[in-house]
Computed example of a mutant assay.
Amino acid sequence: MSYPDTAGYKTPGASKEAAIAVRDQARVLRKRIVAYLKSQYPRDYTADEIAEHFGLSLLPVRPRLAEAHYAREVEQSGKRRLSRAGRRVNCWRAVLTEEEKAARHG
């Protein structure tokens, strides 16, 4: 498996070791985030808001959003809101399959 199906790293050493250590938890968290965003569609959320929903820090959430974005499971909604740090950040929403769209309207 490779990115985005598993946690990624840019350099060997500590980065690679950390990616391997969190591989299974990262995959589960990514699925939970995508499922949550699908359940809330078309609402959008910042990474901070998603982290808060799951009772987590921002640190494991951001890379899962990046993986899901790379896999086209989530997208930026085009909106921006303030983060906890007071910066304007992107909002994310799920990307629904055609079947999921049809099920919502049918």
Rank of each mutant, 00 (worst) to 15 (best):
V74L: 09
A7T: 06
W92L: 01
R88M: 13
R43W: 06
S83I: 03
R27V: 02
L29P: 05
K38N: 04
E75K: 10
A102M: 15
A47D: 03
V74D: 02
W92H: 07
E67I: 04
S15R: 13
A102V: 15
S83Q: 03
R62P: 01
E75P: 03
L29Y: 08
I20W: 06
I33M: 04
I33R: 00
A51W: 00
E49L: 03
E75Q: 13
S77T: 14
T46S: 11
S77C: 15
A71P: 02
A68F: 06
R93T: 13
K38L: 05
Y9A: 09
R88S: 10
R104S: 05
A94C: 10
V95T: 10
G106Q: 13
I20T: 11
Y9E: 07
L96G: 04
S2M: 07
H69C: 09
H105R: 15
T97E: 06
P4S: 04
R72H: 13
A18I: 13
S2L: 11
W92P: 01
V22E: 08
R87C: 06
V34F: 06
S39A: 11
A19H: 03
D5C: 09
Q76F: 12
E99H: 08
L65T: 02
Y45K: 07
K10A: 12
P12Q: 11
L56D: 01
A18E: 10
D48G: 03
D48L: 02
R23A: 14
C91V: 03
C91E: 09
V89S: 04
K79E: 15
P42D: 14
R27K: 12
M1G: 14
I33K: 00
D24P: 02
Q76G: 12
E98W: 12
A68W: 06
E100A: 11
D44A: 10
S83D: 03
E52N: 06
L59A: 13
K10G: 14
L96A: 08
V28T: 11
L65R: 03
R87I: 07
A26R: 04
A14W: 15
D5V: 08
T46Q: 02
L65M: 09
A14S: 15
L96V: 11
P12E: 13
V74W: 08
R32Q: 15
V22K: 05
S77N: 06
S83V: 01
Y41Q: 04
H105F: 14
Q76R: 13
T97N: 07
A19T: 04
D5M: 10
R87T: 10
Y70R: 15
G78N: 12
D5F: 13
E98D: 15
C91L: 08
P4Q: 04
R104P: 02
Y3I: 08
T97Q: 02
V61A: 00
A71Y: 09
V22D: 05
S77D: 10
R23I: 10
A7V: 04
